[in-house]
Nucleic acid binder design. Structure first.
Lengths: 108, 108
DNA sequence: ATTATATGTCGTATGTTTGCGTCATAAAAC
DNA sequence: GTTTTATGACGCAAACATACGACATATAAT
């Protein structure tokens, strides 16, 4: 399976972005990082009802997709949003939906 | 597993929306429906490099999440975008990212 | 040096998604 | 009425995602 290669790069990138956002824990992490503007370490765990291991894994996924970035500071790791990258993805997202915004096809 | 209940309804809804968009085939379907403004039946299959069964399944998922809507017309089914619903989700999406848009935390 | 703390990695169990072939249904064409 | 056509539903296999406990590493505190 995994036939994603058959689609255009645009759609694949957008789909990956959506996938990164497709779990409430990851959204909660992004939200938390956005709110506590200072970069906060992985004791994000205290704010999320999941085990430390699981949170760590979600952080890893967000990091791999470039939405966040962690900087080692002694024992702790300070995480923060990669705003540039996020904004870039949001632009692609919004231009994708521009066509849809302009349409009026459904009567339901 | 499946600990999603532990998160706020907002985040869960947003995560579901993102999940609906997390496959290039589904994005391709939405795009196609947006472009061919008239509602087009399931021979969407011709525009997507997947089997008819698989496309039908993606259509079902989009339908279940309320992003599209299918109306039976004899043998065929005319699908179209549920713009209202999509716009509603886009609003939630954008208000979620408003905070992030306003932040400037990452130096990378 | 030893202990405590913060974090990441590994392996594993279970659940979900993707993709497809085959069958069922139901309208339309003949 | 039989055949063709457009769909959807069912069931299966492979791949992926989610969640976590146990172990590893590495800095800081004692």
């Amino acid at each position: 399976m995994i036939k994603t290669e058959a689609f255009s790069d645009d759609l694949q990138e957008l789909a990956k972005f959506a996938k990164a956002l497709s779990h409430p824990a990851r959204l909660a992490i992004l939200k938390y990082l956005a709110e506590t503007k200072t970069c906060i370490s992985g004791d994000i765990t205290d704010f999320i009802p999941l085990s430390r291991t699981t949170v760590s894994q979600h952080l890893k996924e967000l990091k791999e997709f470039g939405l966040i970035h962690g900087e080692i500071d002694g024992l702790k790791v300070n995480y923060c949003l990669c705003n540039n990258n996020i904004l870039k993805h949001l632009d692609v997202f919004e231009s994708f939906f521009k066509t849809i915004r302009a349409t009026e096809t459904c009567y339901k």
